[in-house]
Design a protein around this nucleic acid. Structure first.
Lengths: 342, 342
DNA sequence: TTGTAAGCGTTATCAA
DNA sequence: TTGATAACGCTTACAA
């Protein structure tokens, strides 16, 4: 790694002052065209690149966003978060920002990471990829004036409309409603919902969309809702009982699921039971549902990523600047899309 | 975010010079105990933390490792890379390093990222998570004296023993050999291998382990090897033919697979065909194989991550320092572990 | 429009 | 063992 050229080298080569070089880089408008072109040629001749750390020291900005990497969840659904982080990294780079990872085992550990990364001026903002009822992390960030946005709306005491809390989320109810309508259109009579135990912000939201769609078609959701942890095996076992008619309720001919893990479990249970015409619709559109040919609700994590950056940096902003007054509502709700496969 | 205290603040509070504070942080041995304790108290009283960018500017070291995030592969096996990145982040933090993400669509784009990140002194080293025959990226990094390590040994013209090219890999052959021996011990007679088309460094290695284990037990692998792309559906289709005896070879009673995607495909094919005693062994130990109760070879990505950092930073090193002469062979081969589930 | 001077917070060098 | 001084490369005043 040979020594990199600096602004001084460029200035020398272009016959201007260091400051002019800096202006060409940061405020091209205020420098005369001829001068600018000379400087630009010198820059490309020398292969000059600004030294990121020096710039950060001076501007007191890191141009970096921190995001927590979760230990591999053990679910199929990790794929959504993967795609989100990837899209975030890609779009952030286009806006001159970078993504720094950190890990934590508990919320307290995560707050310690907040402290470490903000005190060291390592990051300008954080992105949290899940929030829960009574989350201490958002409180800490608000209290310390650290910019952040969450993928996932604040459930619980936080005010959904609080303009301080920026959030992006997927309209889960709209997704399950679309899935349910698809099943209705396909002529299904008993459309169930396989979800997670309440209370679960995300899970209850998805159940709501299913129930609403049924009611709006004059049907009752009663007796058609089952809940298990987000686990293929648990779903398979639960649906085994339901499909063989062992349960109290009706036997479904379609099941809208809160996740692909559950959907795959339901699909396998149907195979186990020799039921071949059960319509199973998943959520997350993971490779597994694709491989099995199951329809699934696509979360569009790429759109969520763009929305996150729009909130943090402004629609066309190129830096996280808390002093710029926020426009808009402070949140983005992404409409999911049903991927139909059968 | 209130203004952070600086070394000067600490120095003032402790009644020493700035430099002494710096010494307490970076060379505690050379400062008298009494002084050191005074400074340390001041540090914790003020809640001082070094400013990362300033330190980086001065030391010309970023304490950061760059890693490419792949677009979600579409395979089940992404889980291994996920766990690896997570473990890398966690272990790097313990050694005072950070992990920065970048994306690229092509090798050329990735080289452009190398350039961008090294010129800006954003990273000290890179970790590449896959290498292929004739990889231009390692050449660029070597040429520009940028430290790097790869997860995956260099296949092809690179010298495996080149001490310049640090690599960590999983002994795939050992993994499939263990799987094969397990099948033999379980009394299976016709143990097949479902892998990927040649040439594939990783895939051929895994096939080798299976064939070797068979031969060492006096059996022949002939006619029991099938190859498809790493795709559940393709595997399912291929095995459907094999299991119904439609192929030329013998019908297997066990299948060692090059990945969990293939294993799940084989498992589903067996279910489709009504074959319930096919022993399927996967590779990668993903949640799906766990959920389906399939045995699988565990890659131990956490150990790979530790090995990567050991190579880059030395066994107990706390920084990437290319000037420190390397000890050891310059590579680590991790022994995988068979997780038995049936 | 361009140049000069100062300083961001840290550590390396060297003298005390 | 400690302290003064001088960078590291950049940008933000402000002056020319």
């Amino acid at each position: 790694m040979a020594r990199q050229p600096t602004v001084s080298d460029v200035a020398l080569a272009a016959g201007v002052s260091r400051q002019t070089v800096s202006n060409v880089l940061n405020a091209p408008d205020i420098v005369r065209t001829a001068t600018r072109e000379r400087v630009e040629r010198a820059i490309s001749d020398l292969g000059y690149r600004p030294h990121a750390s020096a710039r950060r020291l001076r501007t007191r900005r890191s141009s970096t966003i921190g995001i927590r990497l979760y230990p591999f969840a053990g679910g199929i659904s990790g794929a959504v978060l993967d795609r989100y982080v990837h899209a975030l990294t890609e779009n952030a780079a286009e806006r001159g920002m970078r993504i720094l990872l950190y890990t934590a085992r508990t919320p307290d550990e995560e707050i310690e990471q907040f402290r470490r990364l903000t005190d060291g001026a390592d990051v300008d903002a954080f992105v949290l990829t899940s929030t829960f009822h009574g989350d201490a992390r958002t409180g800490w960030l608000l209290e310390h004036d650290v910019p952040f946005a969450t993928f996932g709306r604040p459930w619980g005491d936080d005010d959904l409309g609080d303009p301080q809390h920026l959030w992006v989320d997927v309209d889960g109810a709209a997704g399950t409603a679309a899935a349910t309508k698809h099943a209705i259109a396909a002529g299904r009579r008993a459309i169930g919902f396989l979800g997670w135990p309440s209370p679960s912000g995300t899970g209850d939201d998805r159940a709501r969309g299913w129930a609403r769609a049924l009611r709006s078609h004059g049907r009752s959701p009663d007796g058609l809702r089952w809940a298990v942890e987000d686990d293929l095996t648990a779903a398979r076992a639960a649906m085994a009982g339901v499909l063989t008619g062992g349960g109290p309720g009706p036997v479904p001919d379609a099941v809208v699921c809160a996740s692909d893990s559950l959907a795959v479990g339901a699909h396998l249970a149907a195979m186990d039971a020799g039921v071949h015409d059960l319509l199973v619709i998943g959520f997350d559109n993971t490779p597994v549902s694709e491989a099995l040919g199951l329809s699934s609700v696509e979360q569009r994590p790429e759109d969520v990523a763009v929305g996150t950056l729009d909130l943090l940096m402004g629609a066309h902003g190129t830096a996280v600047d808390p002093s710029v007054p926020r426009t808009g509502t402070g949140h983005v709700l992404v409409e999911p899309r049903l991927i139909v496969r059968e």
